[in-house]
Design a protein around this nucleic acid. Structure first.
Length: 423
RNA sequence: GGAGAAAUGGCAGAGCGGUCGAAUGCGGCAGUCUUGAAAACUGUUGAGGGUCACACCUCCGGGGGUUCGAAUCCCUCUUUCUCCGCCA
């Protein structure tokens, strides 16, 4: 959520920046500033009324003490009037605040200056590419066929137990998943991230804190009985651990990681792009979260990019990095780098990581701040990135490492799997 | 699931319906003393809104109520603790 004071100070600049997301902010900013004006003047009238009422109560108290009950009775009537006035003013105030919040919740984050304008993924900017795309032998298959051939992932079984998008990993497939999780967590630990095991259900306040609510309500599974949400990413519980916190300089930066299953409803997709592991309702992911001082956040973002690069290089997967354009970037992000692995058998790129800086967009909602050396309080920056999302990494490994003798295990994973080939 | 008790500032812990944003202790910060540190002593120390700065307003788990006036009384929700039951 943007800060009203920033909108006031940077209105024109923000309008231009939001145009890169194809978001027309002109009118909405005008209404925000008007409502904020209303909010402040109503607040100030309410404060005056309350101040008067407080004063009056003190006087009445004194009069009672000195036994002047008649005078006190007269003042009581005045007090009743003030009470009536403050009641209606506070209704006005609540109303103005609610309208203002609603508007603010509907405005996406301001894109960083390096974000290209654009309307779709076509306009994303490729900034890096590495790894050799293997030349596969005759008869190579997409991962869903490999999964069946070697009996390592069973989609039908998942259909039976739950429904589409909930695969069952079996035998070496299950072991491969566990190996990847352990490998990713170990790498995160080496890079200094503290590991957490987190709740998979979160409350409404957490959903608002990281920005999944109110705008992406349809993305999450909602447990209505308890009013809880299944997490779409570990970002939600990881970041919300720090909601309503005042950190000190020495706490920073905060770096944490966690492995969790992630749940996404993702209604309305179909076809080859959601085949196999390409798009699931439940999948595993190791997530990184950083909380940084504003002046360090973009350097930290580059550091996260380097971390993810290292993973892909060790796994020896061909990948590229995209800088997302305004139209493709998530609602809450100021700058996002997507990592994609080349799926040889499908002949397409698969997104396996998204690394973003949210600047103060989340911390404003989260009320996550720190006290700097001079004792000034300011909002921190939050960042997060997948390192990595498992299913598509697995798809990439299955497809790129397939040979007539079976699927070779990337060398770096062998200590974790205990086998070097799926056959 | 049943029965009781509780929720106050970074922590611990007082608090008669008015002078309580809240005693006291610890911790934090600044200073005195010291070659330096510790100890001791002195001062200072919650958050949000608002203002150029004051003033002023709000906040004692959340929400509602009683009252001229609520941390203090009532209702309700949540959480924690103790006892009983059940249970991986």
């Amino acid at each position: 959520m943007l800060q009203v004071s920033n909108i006031r100070a940077n209105k024109e600049k923000y309008i231009a920046a939001l145009a890169k997301r194809n978001f027309d902010a002109e009118d909405i900013f005008t209404r925000v500033l008007q409502l904020d004006e209303t909010r402040r003047s109503t607040q100030s009238r309410l404060d005056d009324t309350l101040a008067e009422a407080n004063q009056l109560s003190k006087e009445i108290g004194l009069l009672f003490k000195t036994g002047e009950h008649l005078k006190a009775g007269a003042l009581k009537e005045q007090s009743a009037q003030l009470k009536e006035a403050s009641r209606s003013l506070s209704e006005e105030l609540t109303d103005a605040v609610a309208k203002l919040d609603q508007l603010l919740y509907s405005i996406p984050n301001i894109p960083h200056e390096s974000v290209p304008a654009g309307t779709s993924e076509e306009d994303n900017e490729e900034i890096f590419k590495a790894g050799d795309i293997p030349v596969l032998a005759e008869g190579s298959m997409p991962h869903w066929e490999l999964a069946k051939k070697y009996d390592i992932i069973d989609f039908e079984l998942g259909n039976k137990i739950t429904g589409a998008g909930f695969p069952v990993y079996k035998g070496k497939g299950a072991r491969m998943q566990r190996a990847l999780i352990a490998y990713f967590l170990d790498k995160a630990a080496t890079s200094g991230y503290k590991e957490y095991q987190l709740p998979l259900l979160v409350n409404e306040a957490s959903g608002y804190g990281t920005g999944q609510l109110p705008d992406k309500e349809g993305q999450m599974y909602h447990v209505t009985e308890e009013d809880l949400y299944l997490i779409p990413t570990a970002e939600v519980p990881l970041t919300n651990m720090f909601r309503d916190q005042m950190l000190s300089e020495s706490d920073l930066p905060v770096t944490c990681t966690g492995y969790t299953p992630c749940f996404r409803r993702e209604a309305g997709s179909y076809g080859a792009h959601v085949r196999g592991l390409n798009r699931l309702h439940q999948f595993d992911k190791v997530e990184l979260v950083r909380i940084e001082k504003p002046e360090n956040s973009f350097a930290a973002l580059e550091g996260m990019v380097d971390h993810v690069k290292e993973l892909l290089e060790e796994l020896k997967l061909p990948y590229r990095i995209l800088r997302l354009c305004g139209g493709d970037m998530g609602f809450t992000a100021a700058l996002t780098y997507d990592f994609e692995v080349f799926s040889t058998a499908q002949d397409r790129w698969l997104e396996i990581s998204s690394v973003s800086n949210f600047e103060t967009f989340q911390t404003n909602r989260l009320k996550l701040r720190y006290k700097d050396k001079d004792g000034n309080k300011q909002l921190l920056h939050t960042l997060n990135g997948s390192a990595l999302a498992l299913p598509r990494v697995l798809a990439g490994i299955l497809e790129n490492y397939q040979t007539p003798e079976g699927i070779m295990v990337p060398e770096v994973l062998i200590p974790y799997t205990g086998f070097d080939r799926i056959d």
